[in-house]
Simulated scan of single mutants.
Amino acid sequence: MSFALLAPLGLAALAACALPILIHLVRRLQLERTEFAALRWISARVQPRRRIRFERPWLLLARLLLLATLALLLARPVLDQVEANGVEHAYIAPGADPAAARALFDRTGVDLRWLAPSFPPAEQPLADHAVPFASLLREADASLPAGATLHVVVPRTLGGLDGERPRLAHALDWHVVDGEANATPVVARATIHFAVRYADEDATSLPYLRAAVAAWNAREPGRYLLDAAPLARGVPADARWLAWLAPSRPAEVDAWVERGGIALVAHDAGGGEPLWRDADGSVLARSRVQGAGRTIALPDSLSPTRLPDVLDARFATLLLDALRGAAGAPDRADAAAFEPARATYEARIDAAPLPGPVRPLDARFALLAAILFVVERVLATHVAQRGAS
């Protein structure tokens, strides 16, 4: 158990302690001069010895203690209640061999737990599902007392990562054993309705889109449903992706995109981030956010003369990536290559919270300040009464 301050800048209020000292020094100089006849025989060359002496020292002490208590109250004092009981903290990542982990820590004084929500004891059976390993590791690191070592047993293949190598505030003891983390469950992929609406002059673009959708379905059978029709059919309510192949588009299409749709629009020379370029660096397509959706704008028609990439074998993949958007960060990695790093000293000071629970002392210091105020008033009143008599 140790004393700490949550807002140490509050101690700057201690500068106010100079105020009562100055007041007592000034009042000491305010003395009445009384003439004594016998003093005329004392030579003026004899000067009295001077020294600094405070009048009413007990009153000054009470005022100084009161100001110091108020300054500490502003600094928000707390008591750190972490008990140094000598217990080591070790965690087993789901997927690691529990027997191998117990063999590594086959000694007394080790608290062995699963690196899972609520950190259950290692003796408790664990449900077979994926866990957010990276965030749980940071949580375990933040819960340790200062100076402790974080012991972690992980399988050779980690899961539940968030794309960033964790940086920990405590020393790390990293053990890799046989096993593999549970993969994130794959959610059944719903069918994607890809609507294509075209003008007569852009009907020649249809074969390229049909070939792209056929290539997609070859990898994911039956997932992509192509609905090609003239402009008069409008935008289907259940369409997720749209290709609008016409020199102009109605407000209906823009409204559909703003509600969250993704549209490939021909004859659109608007701005946006460059998406595809040719060999000379010229922009062939741009992507821009539009409300809750996104537009992939082609400056001209979807044809080999205007967009040579449609004849490239990679066109189907390029178009699919453009419609899907940015891919998520990988959540699996080799444990030996993913060993977390320790944060720098400055980062640990700035980011690490106080280890363990704390007990606020605000109420106690406020009570002490009230008592000192009463004492100061009693002493000041007593001094005033003595001066009046």
Rank of each mutant, 00 (worst) to 15 (best):
A285Q: 07
G291S: 08
H267S: 02
A279F: 04
V310H: 12
L275C: 06
S301E: 06
G325C: 02
I296L: 13
F315P: 09
A322R: 06
L319G: 05
A333C: 13
G281K: 09
G272D: 00
A316P: 14
A266T: 11
L275H: 07
A333Y: 15
R286T: 13
A285T: 10
R288Y: 00
R288S: 03
L323I: 03
A333K: 15
W276F: 08
L307C: 07
P308N: 06
D331I: 14
L319A: 04
G293N: 05
V283L: 08
I296C: 03
A327Y: 04
H267T: 05
L320V: 09
T317N: 14
G270P: 01
G272H: 02
L319N: 06
A279C: 03
G281V: 13
R277N: 11
A292K: 12
A313S: 15
G281W: 10
A269L: 09
W276G: 01
D268M: 05
S301H: 10
L318R: 14
L311V: 04
D278I: 14
G272K: 03
P308V: 02
E273D: 11
D268P: 05
R294Y: 00
F315V: 08
R314I: 07
G271P: 09
A285I: 11
L311M: 08
H267G: 01
L307H: 06
G293R: 00
G293P: 01
R288N: 00
H267L: 01
V289G: 02
W276K: 08
P299Q: 09
G325I: 06
G271R: 03
P304M: 10
G291Q: 07
R314A: 14
A326K: 06
A285C: 07
G271N: 03
L323E: 04
A327R: 11
A329T: 14
A285D: 08
R306N: 02
D278K: 09
G291M: 03
R332D: 02
P308A: 01
D312F: 08
V310I: 15
S282R: 14
R314T: 12
P304N: 08
A322W: 02
L298H: 10
A322T: 07
A297H: 07
A279M: 11
L275Q: 12
A327P: 04
G281E: 13
L319W: 14
L323T: 02
L302R: 07
A316S: 15
A327Q: 12
